[in-house]
Design a protein around this nucleic acid. Sequence first.
DNA 1: CGTAATCTTGAGTCACGTCAATTAACGTGG
DNA 2: CCACGTTAATTGACGTGACTCAAGATTACG
Lengths: 244, 244
Amino acid sequence: MNYPEQRFLPELRGHSIEGAQSETRIMNLLSPEQQARLANIASLVDVRTGGLIFGEGNRADFIYAVAAGMVRISRCSASGRRQVLDFVFPGDMLGYHERGIYVNSARALSPARLYRLPWSKLGTLLQQDPELHASFLARAAFDLRQAQKRIMTLGQQNVAQRLASFLLNLVEQPQFYDSQLHQLSLPLTRFDLADYLGTTPETVVRVLARLEQEGVIRRLSARLLEIRRLDWLSTLLEAGRRGG
Amino acid sequence: MNYPEQRFLPELRGHSIEGAQSETRIMNLLSPEQQARLANIASLVDVRTGGLIFGEGNRADFIYAVAAGMVRISRCSASGRRQVLDFVFPGDMLGYHERGIYVNSARALSPARLYRLPWSKLGTLLQQDPELHASFLARAAFDLRQAQKRIMTLGQQNVAQRLASFLLNLVEQPQFYDSQLHQLSLPLTRFDLADYLGTTPETVVRVLARLEQEGVIRRLSARLLEIRRLDWLSTLLEAGRRGG
DNA sequence: CGTAATCTTGAGTCACGTCAATTAACGTGG
DNA sequence: CCACGTTAATTGACGTGACTCAAGATTACG
């Protein structure tokens, strides 16, 4: 495993989609002193591909920050189906809980490195440092806005558009996108993708096939795409649900 | 306008769906002293039905807490379609912003009373009171979980199930549900409902019609339902997308 | 009382889910 | 290195839930 060198909570994930400089990247940049204090209570955890970080229903004693890799956040519904709520990347946080219990499960989709913060000690730290406290509040607000974007996507886009949104997000991750060769590697199964997009593996495949026919992408293998028309993916999003 | 008497941030909205006592109701109960300090910087705002509280793109100088009424939170997408992100009720907060700009619009669906907090003064207050700060962090985390529940709903339930979820939520609001007569008043149009559920007005109507045929509800008028089988609505949610 | 908005219902079409079968990728042990 | 089993990916056929378009019915409001 070869991790890119990264400082603690390095630069929180920015989304160039909505502007050159994301708010989060600025607001959540912690002072070296704050980073040191966090590092003090944090322990480093390495997880291999497929490894469980925490499970729905477990006691939630920690929150995590991603240093390297990609993590899948999911939850099972009353009907037993799994929904993938989000994928998180370096700079993101995970481990929100409810009454001391994790409400979601987190699993590594690639070799991942995480900072693990005991909730008890973090609470003390937050009480002592209002600025740090504010950073965490801003972070939660950011995560809420991300969730709202997903509500927009799931509420009004068709599967092709949702898939395009996902691809455009993943392209922002240097660890998975080679911008020279325009090659995007998908570190997940069609099932994961389907559960994220709120559809079925078959439909994901069909949509990929159609995008290939239209010359937007090429499937070099099941898990490796060549992105031929990045701009078309963006334009896709501006259309109505029925193509209009 | 006749408002039920309520203290400031009275008891934050609890969701009996997921347990007798919601975490929020407990965690976010502010001390009388904290309430007083917040009331100090808050001003009371009354909004009539249909009134705009703030608009997407406006400068975000305030955050709001609902004292009475029902408010619709929505956003327009690149394709121009409107998505209703949430409905908020007494005890809820609204006004999350991004780089000083509101990302959503808020409009009153009924006569509403709001506490308006200047963001600048609130920031100072939070710096001085770690406990209050923690309450706001907990609130943001709660709102995130609410958003995640909506992701689950939109990702894997059919329209009937999504509608059932909405009705079950609204039944929790005493201001709109008469639990003696089992009458639920809908303070919104079919368009609002459709944009909330990620569907069309026509489909909403058809689903309501089917629920009436099945004896689950009765339409006393377009905006007034009799809930005949509250339990059936709950059971609906446990089925698969295709009825299984 | 008239005009506009909202709501309702119907007919036709399409996107997507389901079921089923084939092919490809991957790991394991001989 | 290859035979084999297992899982993932793909493709086809088919049914259906939900969207679109269009026409009434009802309600709200000046």
